[in-house]
């Protein structure tokens, strides 16, 4: 159980620091500091937050911004079904558990051996990431406000790197690589043709089709799909 707390704390620090880049990129995208903080406090899911400000920065519609962020949040539903039976919480604690159900807390929780360690790992990571992510978002947002021209600092390139870092651990499986290649082609082809935000949604639509029509891996269980809906390895 001490190991679970230690693991959760180190994941929380590593992930929390990343909040600096979110805060800075968000204000550079034209999202105000209070709106940036609302995203980290209320939405609290890194991928969805970066996606939302990315669509806003590109001049996409509110619909495209909400749809992209929401689609990226779907995996948290699957995490909830996995951790909920392990946590055994009721009432308001269940709402708190839901809010901190993200990649990192789920990864640490499912990696533990005893029920007590699962709970300790989940809550340490979830609350730790929440507190540090918000603190560093504020720091980044205030710093980003003072930076001036974001291109001179390479902040536009930092956004692409952030998404690459998020997808990297999910590219191990063959099928994920095929979908990634399709997403590249579809996105590049559509950027000149449709309004900002829609190429990303089109790539998601392609993935849904592939997921629904492709046959399950024969001979091997769903592990063939890499994480099979499970969270990435925590950093």
């Amino acid at each position: 159980m001490r190991a679970a707390v230690r693991q959760g704390a180190s994941v929380a620090i590593a992930t929390g620091l990343y909040g600096i880049s979110f805060g800075a990129l968000s204000v550079v995208a034209g999202v105000s500091v209070p709106q940036t903080m609302a995203l980290s406090l209320l939405l609290f899911s890194g991928g969805s937050q970066f996606a939302l400000i990315g669509v806003v920065a590109a001049g996409g519609s509110p619909f495209a911004a909400v749809a992209t962020a929401t689609l990226l949040g779907v995996r948290n539903t699957l995490y909830g079904t996995v951790v909920s039976p392990l946590l055994q919480v009721r009432g308001w604690r269940r709402l708190a558990a839901a809010q901190v159900t993200i990649d990192e807390s789920t990864a640490v929780a499912v990696g533990q051996r005893t029920p007590a360690a699962v709970r300790a790992g989940f809550w340490t990571t979830g609350i730790g990431v929440f507190v540090l992510w918000n603190a560093f978002t504020l720091l980044g947002a205030v710093a980003g406000d003072a930076l001036g021209d974001p291109r001179a600092w390479g902040l536009d390139a930092a956004a692409g790197a952030a998404f690459l870092a998020l997808v990297w651990p999910r590219l191990a499986a063959r099928r994920a690589q095929v979908v990634a290649a399709l997403a590249v082609v579809v996105s590049l082809a559509l950027i000149p043709l449709v309004p900002a935000g829609l190429p990303v949604l089109a790539a998601a639509a392609v993935a849904i089709v592939v997921g629904l029509v492709s046959r399950p891996a024969t001979g091997r269980p769903e592990r063939e799909d890499g994480d099979g809906g499970r969270p990435e390895e925590a950093q």
């Binding site: 991928g47 998404f163 994920a176 809906g229």
Partner: peptide, 19 residues
Amino acid sequence: QRTSTLVTVALLVSLVVVQ
């Protein structure tokens, strides 16, 4: 499970390309 995983991959890769 498979579709959810693939949608996450496609969204993130597409965001890399767009950014």
